[in-house]
């Protein structure tokens, strides 16, 4: 069984982004970029499936500018077998368009399982996995905490608002990762070297017949309201005096 893993190149999670003065977007010039952390978890899970003999091949896909090839190299160094770069001009591609491209790739590659991240930490959309599953008519297990893959089905334990829920889905299916599914490995130096020889195929959205023109109009991107400066208190009793004065202690 082939496993498909979409990986997105995003601003590194340690970076606090700045808004451009003209409010047209966030300033990404000279900002550190990395693989979306949830996608690292997705690659790790796919590679483990291969190591356990449950997957035969792990294919990583990234939709983005030429530099997204670096993100694919990271996936290859972690153990993915090959990459597909769907090259764009660098403008953000909306989740629905990403899902349509992934659908076309899934139809061509025929994976038995697709693992995406639950959300990209730049758009915070939390949409692509679910949209892809719907477009393919496949079931899904989102926000995965644990996975058991057996024969033609998968048992996926999900992190939900009230705790954990387990669903059983038929394959093929889409799973989206949550934080505690696994601890992604660091790529070793020999594996980084080996990854340089693994193939990355270059495509464009047009190859899949998908129009990536944005459908939303971004009117502006602004700073969130700033909190006023606070004060330090010296003791528990001073703290409680303040809180009682604020009227927040009922």
């Amino acid at each position: 069984m082939k496993v498909l893993v979409p990986v997105k190149r995003v601003v590194d999670y340690n970076v606090k982004v700045r808004i451009k003065p003209d409010q047209s977007g966030v300033d990404l010039a000279n900002v550190k970029m990395s693989m979306n952390p949830f996608d690292e978890i997705a690659v790790e899970e796919a590679v483990r499936l291969k190591e356990k003999g449950k997957a035969t091949e792990v294919v990583a896909v990234s939709i983005g500018p030429q530099q997204a090839a670096e993100t694919l190299r990271t996936a290859l160094a972690m153990g993915a077998d090959r990459g597909i770069l769907v090259k764009t001009d660098g403008a953000a591609v909306e989740p629905l368009a990403v899902a349509k491209i992934l659908k076309a790739i899934a139809e061509a590659e025929q994976p038995g399982f697709v693992i995406t991240g639950k959300q990209a930490i730049d758009d915070d959309a939390n949409q692509v996995g679910q949209m892809l599953a719907a477009l393919l008519g496949w079931p899904q297990g989102t926000f995965a905490h644990a996975l058991e893959l057996e024969g033609g089905s998968a048992k996926i334990t999900r992190e939900i608002d009230g705790g954990l829920q387990t669903v059983a889905v038929t394959l093929p299916a889409v799973m989206t990762t949550d934080l505690r599914l696994n601890q992604p490995r660091y790529a070793s130096l020999p594996n980084i070297m080996k990854a340089k020889k693994k193939p990355i195929e270059e495509k464009t959205p047009a190859d899949y017949g998908v129009d990536v023109t944005p459908r939303f109009k971004v009117l502006k991107v602004s700073e969130p309201p700033k909190r006023g400066g606070g004060v330090k208190v010296a003791s528990v009793s001073e703290l409680l005096d303040k809180l009682q004065a604020e009227g927040v202690l009922s």
Binding site: K16, V17, D122, D124, L219, K220, V221, E223, P224
Partner: peptide
């Protein structure tokens, strides 16, 4: 978006 560090009007 971006962990609440930016507010997008769409």
């Amino acid at each position: 978006i971006y962990a609440g560090n930016a507010i997008e009007t769409v």
